[in-house]
Computed example of a mutant assay.
Amino acid sequence: MRVVSLVPSLTEAVAVTLPGVLVGATDWCTHPAGLDVARVGGSKYPDLDRVRALRPDLVLLNVEENRREDADALAAAGVPVRVTYPRTVPAALDELAGLLTDLGAPGEPEWLVAARRAWADPPALPRVRTAVVPVWRRPWVVLGAETFAGDVLRRLGVVNAYAGHPERYPRPGLDELRARRPDLVVLPDEPYLFTADDGPEAFPGVPCALVPGRHLTWYGPSLADAPAVLAAALSAPLPAA
């Protein structure tokens, strides 16, 4: 089996579980450290000629991470594709289990068993808080309805202020975001690199929690320690400016 992954979290899941199966990944596939496979460009604009040249038995894609036209082009060229789209933690865990089994794993890997255990009883914040969760700036883009990251936060006691929005990634203006009067602003470090100096200043008077994006949005081995890592970050936000 020869697999090319265009999804960073799936790259990590496959490389950790089935070394040798993965033959190609995107330039953004940073985990596991030291991954030595052919690179095929970005997840949004991969070099499909490079992908095909690797003669994959399967290419892994994601509805949010990749473009439909790339999936269609690969399928039209006779390259088998598998498109993932988990919107909840349980769905992600089950989807990962099914994928790894189909790729030849003899059973659920230890990290997946640990992730199931961790999410069966995740730590919750002392009180439920309503949060705005930007994932981009210039323009502002926030988590909306039915997102995987939104479900991750909900299970930790954080209610997404835009969970009822008709769009999955709305683009409200900053005035509207402030008018929501959230208890908390959650700022991940990817896909936009929010830092203590870039983001909190836009929300004076509101505590801002800097969280690792890999633990918030990736579905792979990071799911095993995501509850503890995120709970710690959410429990210690930056002081309100």
Rank of each mutant, 00 (worst) to 15 (best):
R2Q: 09
P80S: 13
P237G: 06
Y219C: 09
P56D: 08
S235W: 10
P170C: 05
P126T: 02
D189M: 07
Y85D: 15
D49I: 02
T130N: 02
A33F: 07
P86S: 12
L216K: 00
P191K: 00
L125T: 02
D49M: 05
G157N: 08
P239N: 14
N160H: 07
L216A: 01
A118H: 15
D197M: 02
A202W: 14
K44P: 01
H165N: 14
A15K: 11
K44N: 09
Y85Q: 06
V141Q: 15
G34H: 05
L96M: 13
A13N: 08
G24D: 11
R82C: 08
V229D: 09
Y219P: 15
E95N: 08
L60C: 01
G205L: 05
G41R: 01
R154D: 11
D27W: 06
T147M: 10
P170N: 14
T17G: 12
E64D: 15
A124H: 15
D47K: 07
E12G: 03
L238T: 00
W140A: 09
A97F: 11
A91P: 06
A202T: 06
S5A: 00
A71I: 01
Y162P: 12
C29V: 10
V128W: 04
W218A: 00
R116P: 08
N160I: 06
G104N: 08
F203S: 03
L174Y: 03
V128N: 01
R39D: 04
A77P: 04
P227H: 08
A161V: 06
A163S: 11
V211E: 06
L125N: 01
A73P: 03
V7R: 06
L18T: 14
V206C: 03
D36W: 08
D94K: 13
V133A: 03
V4L: 09
A71Q: 07
G78S: 04
G98K: 12
V141Y: 15
E201P: 02
D47W: 07
V142W: 12
A75Y: 05
P134D: 00
R50E: 05
P200Q: 02
L10Q: 01
L35G: 10
V135S: 13
A163H: 07
A75I: 02
L238K: 02
R214D: 15
G164Y: 04
P170W: 07
P90W: 01
L10K: 07
A105W: 15
G220S: 02
V16F: 06
A76M: 10
A196E: 14
